[in-house]
Amino acid sequence: MATPTIKSPAFAQFLLRMGDNPLILGHRISEWCGHAPVLEEDIALANTALDMIGQTRMWLGLAAEVQGDGKSADDLAFLRDAWEFRNLLLVEVPNGDFGRTLMRQFLFDAWHAIQLGRLMKSADERVAAIAEKASKEVAYHLERSADTVVGLGDGTEESHRRMQEALDYLWPYVGEMFQSDDVDAEMVTAGIAPDPASLRVEYDALISRILTEATLTIPQSSFAHKGGRTGAMHTEHLGHLLTQMQWLQRAYPGATW
């Protein structure tokens, strides 16, 4: 399979979308460090965050290469402002309780696993290689988050109630994963990535199987917040996250760490 020499801004946009999700979600789950309900969860959350930061380095590294303007993955992570981020809104919402954190993880992992599976067949070998490496990690994330969602959904009355509340709160952020725009159309044409809308059937089947097992009810509404992956409108939460994440790089420009 030949690697097409795509240098289009659309390709860079796509790569930012892939890299910003694990960057922001990795940040969010690392906020749990030392505060999880049980030691095994501390370990698992740190491990998931570590995988996500590793994936970020690969995607943003490639994004920087494709942009070709001398920037590094670190420049992209630490020196862009909120409107330049291309992550899903889902991953930037605050952690809430442990139930919401794990529900968000599950809703994301399910999409992520399917998306990476498709990207393993990308016409761009670099994309395919990253997807292959990441998909092994994500298969494990999905197994864990699905198990936890089932365990807590079908646990006590309280854990069930909290998981249903988490699902209700997060559900409006699910639809954004399947929205397509011009960037996606270019990726489809170039054979680099699938049309996001085309993942929905598989996704719905996967999550409804797990959520049924968890005795949870998927909300009827199909309303979807949007703006994260296009950068048109993020939540208020992202800016606060960035002030923390980017602080050292902003306060001491030019230093190496």
């Binding site: 940040h27 460090c33 370990i43 740190a46 930061i53 590793g54 380095r57 923390q244 050292l248 760490w257």
Partner: peptide, 28 residues
Amino acid sequence: QLPEGNWITRAPTLERKAILLAKVQDEA
């Protein structure tokens, strides 16, 4: 985990963040 976790979200590079996460995970 707490004093080191205190800096994970502020680690200055992706590499330092990954190293610190790996270390704190080891400690747990």
